[in-house]
Computed example of a mutant assay.
Amino acid sequence: MAEPHISEEDFMKFREFFYRKTGIQFDASKRYFVDKRLLERMELTGHETFRSYFIMLRFQASGEELQALTNVMTVNETYFFRESYQFDCMVNSLLPELVTRKTDGDPLRIWVIPSSSGEEPYSIAIYLLERWPGIKNYDVEIIASDIDTRILSQAQQGLYSARSVAQLPKNYLHKYFCRESDSFQISDDLREAVQFTRVNLSEPADTRPYRNFDLIFCRNLLIYFDDLSRKSAAETFYDALRPGGFLCLGHSESMSRISSLYNVRKFPEAIVYQKPLGVRP
């Protein structure tokens, strides 16, 4: 019997399907990556042909296999304090401006998407505790979301390699982590400070409940989207922000090329994108 394989036609069918479901588009340069993971999932689910696997993938009522495939198709490489200049901007420039529009008892709300394995939202929590004096006066909610359920479970566990924590100042490492063999376990207090949720940014039913955020971090995700998906994501974040709220993108991403909805704000530490004041929430 011939070994299962992925034809060019199969690849094109899958690429279109996965794009419609997630907004992520694989070009020809990712062919080996996609084929390898498709063949792995076919073997694990007992399908000898792409056709039979693809039928199951599209019509499985539970969506369980689509989620499993999404988990292995998404890239989740990050580390603590990555692109930390934006965290400096957060505590030095963004939060001081945001709190001027807060009333008593009104929390500051931060959304991190994608959460990946948790390094980014936990880095934000550490920055707030260590470098923002206002943390004593305001309740802060940090919600971190990802499409990958496996990586969300890893983030909630909070167990990290030496490579992940290499950029942390030593005093922060000792203060917020316990050494466990070759890994580092984040403290329970920090784990409880972040709420992790599953969200598909391309699914309106998933994103609709996410509203009234003051600050959104979406870094190094839109590079995997095409122009249409980027524009849709920009509109989703716009709806999720309070008027005057800020959106932070990755260093190689620019909202100016995606959408005109936002005002470009240049702070000493970083360029960020603001939902204009005076618009309806």
Rank of each mutant, 00 (worst) to 15 (best):
M1K: 13
M1G: 14
A2L: 15
P4W: 07
P4S: 08
H5S: 13
I6G: 06
S7T: 12
S7F: 02
F11Q: 00
F11P: 02
K13A: 08
F14Y: 08
F14G: 01
F14S: 00
E16Y: 07
E16L: 10
Y19E: 05
Y19F: 11
R20H: 13
T22Y: 01
G23R: 04
F26M: 03
K30C: 04
F33I: 05
F33K: 01
D35K: 12
K36A: 15
L38C: 03
L39N: 05
R41L: 07
E43V: 08
L44A: 10
L57G: 06
A61E: 12
A61F: 03
S62H: 06
G63E: 06
Q67A: 14
Q67E: 14
N71P: 02
R82K: 11
R82Y: 09
S84V: 12
Y85I: 12
Y85K: 15
Q86L: 04
Q86H: 12
D88F: 01
S93N: 13
V99M: 09
G105E: 05
R109N: 01
I110G: 03
I113T: 07
S115V: 06
S115A: 13
S116H: 00
S117F: 07
S117G: 08
E119W: 04
E120S: 02
A125R: 00
Y127R: 03
L128R: 00
L128Y: 03
L129E: 09
L129P: 01
P133D: 14
I135H: 06
K136T: 14
N137F: 07
E141I: 13
D146E: 00
R150D: 10
I151T: 09
L152E: 07
Q154S: 09
A155C: 01
Q157L: 12
Q157H: 11
Q157P: 00
S161G: 11
R163A: 13
V165C: 02
A166N: 12
A166T: 14
Q167H: 12
Q167I: 06
L168D: 11
P169R: 05
L173F: 11
R179Y: 05
D182P: 08
S183M: 14
F184Y: 14
D188Q: 15
R191W: 11
V194M: 13
Q195V: 13
F196R: 03
T197I: 15
N200I: 05
A205D: 13
R208V: 13
F213S: 00
F213Q: 05
D214I: 10
L215N: 05
L215W: 00
F217V: 07
R219G: 09
L221W: 03
F225D: 06
R230D: 15
A234P: 00
E235H: 15
L241K: 09
R242Y: 09
P243K: 03
L247D: 00
L249E: 08
S252I: 10
S256L: 13
S256R: 15
I258S: 09
S260R: 15
L261E: 02
V264L: 14
R265W: 01
F267N: 10
P268I: 08
P268N: 11
E269P: 01
Y273C: 04
Q274W: 08
K275Y: 02
L277G: 03
R280L: 12
R280A: 12
